[in-house]
Design a protein around this nucleic acid. Structure first.
Lengths: 121, 121
DNA sequence: CGGCATCCAATAGGATACTG
DNA sequence: CAGTATCCTATTGGATGCCG
């Protein structure tokens, strides 16, 4: 992702939720894509979870997508990966503190989604 | 978009911001894509705006993308299109009431984006 | 002026098989 | 068990030109 892509195409002033160098765009890219929300939701519901347990819970996800999504979420600081040197190896994933702040916002957005859906009927 | 796509892959209980039949996913799809936020931001900053004025303000957007994005936003009830039968024709776009509720949420999400960005340094 | 139609490029996502 | 590697498909976005 280049610097240009992070910037909102519109030169935002403080009225705009995008602000100047759009952290809103960044936020949406971090939680965007097909599997990020399902992963965050699973970890939010059940807490610390192992790789294959996640794979079973998130219906339809492949190894490719689960592994790459987990890696991105970890790089973005939303989850932590803990590996235990047992045999066979055990790897656990859990939400970090930044997600504690994210979840209430997503809940508001979900409620907005409900309203939008109703108004279009 | 099929019904299956709207449903969160994880069977959510009320702890989860996704809830059961994920309106959060719907919300993110509505404002997702490359140009939706820039368009919403432009209309939020400057109010009612004409088609070609939007095109000038949103740097890099093509007719194809502007027209299709505007159509989707209108179908989702986020903007209104008003056409005046003058010569040449005048078409204006403006945000609707649902956006008044959306903007404060996006502002929170933007602030969260700032925090996430800082923590990863 | 405000678009739409057509075609093309880029990226996201999926299937399958294999490994430390 | 927890992933990679490779290849393939689908969706998204862009370029160009035309039209009422």
């Amino acid at each position: 992702m280049t610097d240009k892509d992070v910037r909102c195409a519109v030169p935002c002033k403080n009225k705009c939720p995008c602000m100047d160098r759009c952290p809103l765009g960044s936020a949406l890219r971090i939680i965007g894509g097909k599997w990020k929300l399902p992963i965050l939701c699973a970890l939010h519901q059940d807490g610390t979870t192992r790789y294959n347990e996640l794979k079973r819970k998130i219906f339809g996800i492949t190894n490719t997508m689960l592994a790459s999504s987990l890696k991105e979420l970890e790089e973005d600081g939303l989850i932590v990966r803990r590996q235990y040197m047992e045999m066979p190896v055990r790897v656990e994933y859990a939400l970090t503190g930044v997600c504690d702040d994210l979840m209430p916002i997503l809940k508001e957005l979900a409620q907005w989604g409900v309203r939008v859906h109703k108004e279009e009927i």
